[in-house]
Simulated scan of single mutants.
Amino acid sequence: MDLDPHGARLLRFTNNAVYQLASAPLVVRIVGSRALRHRVRKVVQVATWFAEHDVPAVRLAAGISQPVLVGDYAATVWDAVPPFDRRPRPADLARLLRIVHPLSPPLDGLPEWDPLDDVRRRIGEAEGLDGDELSFLRDRCDQVAEQLARLDYVLAPGFVHGDAHLGNLIPAPDGPLLCDFDSSCVGPPEWDLTPLAVGVRRFGEPAALYAELVEGYGFDVTRWAGFPVLREVRELKLITSVLPIMNSSPEVRPELLRRLRDFRSGDDDAQWSRYT
């Protein structure tokens, strides 16, 4: 299938550059970090598995061999979701998580949950940080990894989306759809309940949003003894997500440095702004 890139509109660029084509109802998602290219085949695997199980999720475009590999670049092509004016709610996220968490993962296997792998890879590709800052991030990863290894989880392990927040739900006429399967794995469902809880703390989201997630899912991860460790992992991800593109997207630098400064000082209550 030949696709015309002229007039394509950039929708988002953090870990991936996501473009809406003007020439066809398709979305192209280009991996932004060479160190994370390996995840693209898993994304295709999860999307195919979701389609087989009728999970409400975005669908890969038919007729294209996926992933698309061109030189050093890796991409996936998706059916565009028709615009729909209804913002997804935490209750929608809870419902979708309750659908996917009990599913048996694909027989050919998904990776085990390793939430610091992408953090370490991004540190390895970091642009524009000095040696002391990088050393701090590496050391903190090691410390948090030791804490993770000692946690006792409450919920039964299984399929985990890996980055379950409202931004990874796409409004659609029949209800929101899951997207972004880069971090999907087999692991503790507690992890999928963490992003919204951290969003209340770090981005000033209303506490009522997290309460709605708890009510819909039936478990409050913030009352679990291991939550402070998961919160720190999530914050490390939020800090390092744009490290590989700091030189090419210098507008993200002030916010990254602010997050890193707050994290290093132990200021758990400092409010952050979202990368744009």
Score class of each variant (00 low, 15 high):
residue 101 H to D: 04
residue 178 L to F: 14
residue 153 Y to D: 03
residue 87 R to I: 12
residue 63 G to A: 08
residue 19 Y to T: 00
residue 208 A to H: 04
residue 207 A to S: 14
residue 193 L to A: 05
residue 189 P to F: 07
residue 264 R to F: 06
residue 145 A to E: 11
residue 221 V to S: 01
residue 144 V to W: 01
residue 126 A to C: 07
residue 185 C to A: 15
residue 25 P to H: 02
residue 178 L to Y: 07
residue 234 R to L: 11
residue 39 R to S: 14
residue 122 R to T: 07
residue 85 D to S: 14
residue 49 W to Q: 00
residue 255 E to G: 04
residue 84 F to G: 04
residue 186 V to P: 05
residue 67 P to E: 00
residue 265 S to D: 10
residue 100 V to T: 04
residue 47 A to K: 03
residue 276 T to K: 14
residue 202 R to S: 10
residue 271 Q to W: 10
residue 271 Q to G: 12
residue 13 F to C: 10
residue 187 G to H: 05
residue 147 Q to G: 07
residue 224 W to R: 06
residue 191 W to P: 02
residue 117 D to A: 15
residue 232 E to P: 03
residue 181 F to N: 04
residue 124 G to R: 06
residue 17 A to S: 10
residue 162 G to H: 06
residue 204 G to R: 01
residue 19 Y to H: 12
residue 225 A to Q: 12
residue 207 A to M: 08
residue 190 E to P: 09
residue 194 T to E: 00
residue 13 F to Y: 15
residue 151 L to I: 10
residue 167 G to P: 11
residue 201 R to I: 11
residue 28 V to H: 02
residue 99 I to E: 07
residue 45 Q to T: 13
residue 273 S to T: 15
residue 265 S to V: 07
residue 11 L to W: 02
residue 271 Q to F: 09
residue 122 R to Q: 11
residue 127 E to Y: 03
residue 273 S to C: 11
residue 61 A to R: 12
residue 187 G to A: 03
residue 120 R to V: 14
residue 31 V to N: 15
residue 128 G to C: 10
residue 41 R to I: 08
residue 232 E to I: 08
residue 19 Y to A: 00
residue 266 G to D: 05
residue 233 V to T: 08
residue 25 P to W: 02
residue 236 L to H: 04
residue 103 L to E: 01
residue 144 V to S: 03
residue 168 N to F: 09
residue 244 P to F: 05
residue 141 C to S: 09
residue 102 P to E: 06
residue 249 S to H: 15
residue 74 A to K: 07
residue 158 G to S: 06
residue 152 D to W: 01
residue 246 M to P: 01
residue 159 F to D: 01
residue 198 V to E: 09
residue 25 P to D: 01
residue 198 V to K: 05
residue 102 P to D: 06
residue 116 L to F: 04
residue 158 G to H: 03
residue 88 P to V: 02
residue 49 W to P: 03
residue 144 V to E: 01
residue 262 D to I: 10
residue 61 A to L: 08
residue 76 T to R: 04
residue 159 F to P: 00
residue 137 L to V: 11
residue 108 D to A: 13
residue 115 P to Y: 02
residue 240 T to I: 03
residue 132 D to E: 15
residue 75 A to F: 04
residue 104 S to W: 07
residue 6 H to E: 15
residue 265 S to I: 05
residue 136 F to S: 00
